[in-house]
């Protein structure tokens, strides 16, 4: 479409930055600052992403932010996003309700390496908001459980009220498809928490992790270092470890340079990286 503000007659040129409209069908506050959205493409198209891929979600006037898909493509007609109010864009997006439109560019980046995970023992370690993008893989695995040898999931949150996807947790706790372990850093009496307390690495005492396990880590930067130390004790080589670094993007299409870690671009080479392929952990984690 011509730009409408000058006399140019440029034919329809595809603009990388043009978002698509997605209709919000349901919303729910998961914690006091974190909101869950169920969406479908306004043009009726089916979901086409890979687990671990990302979206740039936006509202005109406020800007864009990168988010991970919270759902697996095995769910075809809708997708879910989780947004925590932390900045300009996320605060504006969290004001949206069912019936509103969200603007989205997706799918972006490379997701989890499903081919390398199939037929293997898979373990996911998710801290805090890290459960959101990894849920796209968790759901994928539980939907196609027979394609994977074993599946272990560690999930840690700061306190019980910050645990996300509470309905999923109930399922996972009793499911035979996943060895599920959870912990909170701390809790108070009203929480009535009966589970494990302590940082996520305390869960290593409860589960057996063999060196041939493929491990996926997603969480706050500080978590990686401690988890890596535990994995080292379990003799898991760096080639078997994948990290999901999605928090550092701007344009999402490999141009703006903001996500660059050494010679890698998180937005197109990642957000999921093999740990052994990141040369400077200093810039990455």
């Amino acid at each position: 479409m011509a730009c409408g503000t000058c006399n140019c007659n440029s034919p329809e040129i595809e603009n990388l930055f043009m978002p698509k409209e997605a209709l919000i069908t349901e919303t729910k506050w998961m914690t006091k600052d974190t909101k869950h959205f169920v969406l479908k493409w306004a043009d009726g198209s089916k979901v086409s992403h890979q687990p671990g891929q990302i979206v740039e979600a936006s509202l005109f006037g406020f800007g864009e932010i990168p988010l991970g898909f919270a759902t697996s493509p095995t769910q075809e007609n809708s997708f879910e996003l989780v947004i925590r109010q932390v900045g300009r864009v996320s605060t504006a997006l969290c004001k949206l309700e069912a019936g509103d439109t969200m603007l989205i560019r997706a799918p972006l980046g490379k997701g989890f390496p499903l081919d390398e995970l199939r037929g293997e023992k898979v373990m996911i370690i998710a801290g805090g908001l890290g459960i959101v993008p990894t849920r796209s893989l968790i759901n994928y695995i539980t939907d196609r459980r027979d394609e994977f040898k074993s599946f272990t999931l560690f999930y840690g949150a700061r306190n019980p009220s910050e645990l996300l996807f509470k309905e999923d947790l109930v399922k996972w706790r009793s499911s035979k498809d996943v060895h599920y372990f959870e912990t909170v850093d701390g809790c108070c009496e009203e929480d009535n928490w009966k589970g494990n307390t302590g940082v996520i690495t305390t869960l290593f005492k409860q589960a057996e992790v063999t060196p041939d396990t493929k491990v996926i880590i997603c969480g706050p930067p500080i978590m990686y270092r401690f988890v890596m130390m535990e994995l080292y004790k379990c003799n898991v080589p760096h080639e078997n470890v994948y990290v999901d670094l999605e928090r550092r993007m701007k344009c999402g299409v490999g141009k703006c340079g903001h996500c660059q870690i050494n010679d890698k671009y998180v937005c197109i080479d990642g957000p999921v990286f093999k740990y052994s392929e990141l040369d400077s952990k200093e810039e990455a984690l």
Binding site: G61, F62, G87, R88, T91, A92, K95
Partner: peptide, 14 residues
């Protein structure tokens, strides 16, 4: 004008 405009929309000004 920009700061006021952002505030009118409830957006933290840049």
């Amino acid at each position: 004008v920009r700061v006021v405009s952002h505030l009118l929309h409830g957006k933290e000004p840049v």
